[in-house]
Simulated assay, not measured.
Amino acid sequence: MLKLWNKDRIAIATETLKGVSSKVIEALENRPVYIRLRGLACMRGSPAKAYVLHIPVEEVGGEGRLLRACQVIIDAFVEAGLVLQRDAHHSLKLHATLMNAKFRKRNKSAGRRDYFDARGIFKRYGSENWGEYFIPEAHLSQRFAYDRRGYYHCCASMPFLGASKSSDF
């Protein structure tokens, strides 16, 4: 998550993403990317006291092309000064968030970090195979801003195949 708190930083991030497009396509070996979603995991805590419940993302084929491409983007954002120093050395965890206690409706005066019991969810869905998916592009999405379909607003996108049109920027 980048902290892009104004239009200037969003513009820098957009240009940075645009500038690494060819390096990303090279890291992906100009081949399509497919991912597999399988199982469940907690970002922090345990299933009994979960804060974030997510599905781990695996690259189909396990070649590491997607992680290499992501690292190209991360390195470019770090170089552009868009990553906070405390976040610069965190490792990337590809995942699909299902539940986040941070957004749970609760009594705000409790003054403590909220969690939820996910043991029942793990028991029922913990080894579920959620399917394989083609990933055509990367999006730079803006939190708290949504498009007409309810998805995060896409500030910029980068196609993952060289044959795709580059006018998506």
Rank of each mutant, 00 (worst) to 15 (best):
Phe160Thr: 00
Leu66Pro: 01
Ser91Tyr: 13
Tyr34Lys: 08
Leu98Ala: 13
Ala11Met: 04
Asn107His: 04
Arg65Ala: 09
Ser109Gln: 13
Cys42Thr: 14
Val57Gly: 02
Val24Asp: 01
Ala11Arg: 12
Leu84Asp: 03
Leu94Phe: 15
Ile10His: 10
Leu98Tyr: 15
Ile35Ala: 06
Cys155Val: 09
Trp130Cys: 10
Gly111His: 12
Glu63Gly: 12
Gly120Leu: 12
Arg104Val: 08
Ala163Tyr: 08
His54Lys: 07
Tyr152Thr: 09
Arg36Leu: 04
Ser157Gln: 10
Ala48Arg: 14
Val33Thr: 05
Asp75Ile: 01
Leu53Asp: 05
Ser141Val: 12
Ala69Pro: 05
Leu67Arg: 15
Asn100Tyr: 04
Val60Gly: 05
Gln85Phe: 10
Ser164Ile: 06
Lys3His: 09
Gly150Met: 09
Leu2Lys: 07
Glu15Val: 02
Val33Trp: 00
Ser22Asp: 07
Gly162His: 00
Ile73Glu: 01
Ser46Asp: 14
Tyr152Ile: 06
Leu82Lys: 00
Val20Glu: 00
Phe103Cys: 04
Arg149Ser: 08
Met1Pro: 07
Leu2Tyr: 07
Tyr34Gln: 07
Pro159Asp: 05
Val24Gln: 01
Met43Cys: 07
Glu63Ser: 14
Leu4Thr: 04
Thr97Asp: 14
Ser22Trp: 00
Ile73Gln: 06
Leu84Ile: 03
Arg65His: 08
Val52His: 03
Arg44Ala: 10
Gln71Trp: 05
Glu63Gln: 15
Pro136Ile: 04
Ala76Lys: 04
Phe103Asp: 08
Asn6Met: 12
Ala76Arg: 00
Trp5Arg: 07
Leu37Phe: 11
Arg31Leu: 11
Ala118Glu: 15
Lys49Ala: 08
Val72Glu: 01
Phe116Lys: 06
Cys42Pro: 04
Arg106Trp: 04
Ala156Val: 03
Ala110Gly: 09
Arg31Thr: 05
Asp147Gln: 15
Glu63Met: 10
Asp87Asn: 12
Glu128Ile: 12
His89Cys: 10
Gly120Phe: 13
His90Val: 07
Ala101Val: 09
Ile121Cys: 10
Pro56Ala: 00
Leu37Met: 12
His90Met: 08
Ala110Leu: 06
Arg44Glu: 08
Ser21Gly: 09
Phe169Ala: 02
Leu17Asp: 00
Val20Met: 01
Lys3Tyr: 08
Phe169His: 02
Arg86Met: 02
Phe116Asn: 10
Arg143Asp: 13
Gly131Glu: 05
Trp130Glu: 13
Tyr146Gly: 07
Gly61Arg: 06
Leu53Glu: 13
Leu94Thr: 13
Glu26Thr: 00
Ser166Gly: 09
